[in-house]
Amino acid sequence: MGLLLWLAFSTAEASWTVNMTPGATEVSRTVFDLHMTIFWICVVIGVIVFGAMFWSMFIHRRSTGQVPANFHESTTVEILWTIVPLIILVLMAIPATKTLIDIYDTSESDVDIQITGYQWKWQYKYLGQDVEFFSNLATPAEQISNRAEKGEHYLLEVDQPLVVPVGQKIRFLITSADVIHAWWVPALAVKKDAIPGFINESWTRIDEPGIYRGQCAELCGKDHGFMPIVVEAKSQPDYDAWLAEKKAETAKLKELTEKDWTLEELVARGDKVYHTACVSCHQAEGQGLPPMFPALDGSEIATGPKEDHLDIVFHGKPGTSMAAFGKQLSEVDIAAVVTYERNAWGNKVGDMVTPKEVLELKQAEEQ
């Protein structure tokens, strides 16, 4: 019986803990060590203070015939209980200040990555590398709606992780395109608010290859809980290979913009884009969540002039929850999702928007 209880306790302790973890970087380990040092200082102080208090209450209880002392103050005691806490605070502040200085030192970085929060996804842009992409929740809708068993990384998995090299100083430039978010990866000891119009900086240097998960840590709307972060640290050769592959994808995407697409091809691609970028608001069958998120099935926008449909997807609709996707999706994906919405469910308009039309709109915006 005792063995069973011990095994049960060990299992519970392994799966549920209230303490911080050492993390995967030098800074995260320093933060952990600092946390534990201050924790044990507080424990010692607590034991001394509460021990003295309970000892005094027990020894000097009325039932033993104790007589209260009659005095007003002690200058010596008051000096001691002022000086001693001051010394303790200074001793704690010295390593804490050093750690804070290290955390805020983003100079001499090897890789610079701009992180932009959107409702409800992250955009990663590798500055100087012509590589950028969006990272979306990859947990299947069936798991979220309890129609399938939840996976190991439920709500903590994405379609495209942020990939970084190990042993390099990575600087993060964190901002937002809509509301306040917060980019938080506990294992890296990085947590910074993403604020529209501002850029906050942070950095990390990961020691070992691995996958590190986090979440948006600032309530940012309906799908705040569906905005995970996944950082994958690779060895330098593997990172270089990944970066070359992403650059090739960027070049290929530019070629796809010039391709002559068929209606069927755009609808097939648009199906995937819709279920990644649009389904959380407008739902799988286009029924929406009125009045906040209107239905697309049979809507005047999705069955009306395609120019109006493209305009609202590209620019969004001010004063509503409809975001502008002109900077979030590629020309191909915007054309595909608009075409899909016009030909899915009960919408059988039969026309399509081509990537070239989206490119023309984007170029007109830039002039």
Rank of each mutant, 00 (worst) to 15 (best):
P140L: 11
G167K: 06
H153I: 00
D112A: 05
P22A: 12
I144P: 00
G117V: 06
H35N: 15
I301M: 09
T257Q: 08
E285Q: 12
G65P: 02
S202A: 04
K272F: 01
D110I: 00
I59V: 15
G298Q: 09
R269T: 01
Q283F: 03
E232T: 14
L137P: 07
L156A: 13
K222M: 08
A302L: 05
G23C: 03
F314T: 07
G221I: 01
I45S: 09
E300S: 14
A96F: 06
P161S: 03
W81F: 03
G23H: 06
S299N: 07
T25S: 10
C216S: 06
H282Y: 12
A324D: 00
V273F: 01
G319I: 10
I301K: 10
V47F: 12
T17V: 10
K234F: 11
P209A: 03
E218K: 15
I206Q: 02
S74G: 02
V164N: 00
C42M: 08
A284N: 08
V90A: 11
V111A: 03
I59K: 15
E157L: 10
L188K: 11
F9S: 04
V179G: 09
A12P: 05
F226Y: 13
E366C: 08
A277M: 02
P209M: 04
V337S: 04
Q160Y: 09
T97A: 02
L219C: 04
F54P: 11
I103F: 12
V185A: 00
G298V: 06
E142H: 13
N70W: 12
D223R: 14
G304K: 06
L256Y: 10
A217Q: 12
C278E: 04
G197Q: 07
P85C: 00
G286S: 00
P161D: 08
T303P: 07
A336G: 04
V231H: 04
E157D: 15
L329G: 04
G2E: 05
K356R: 01
K348S: 07
V190E: 02
S135T: 12
D238A: 15
L127S: 10
S330M: 10
Y118N: 07
M292R: 14
N136L: 01
Y212G: 06
D130I: 13
M53L: 15
R147K: 12
Q119W: 08
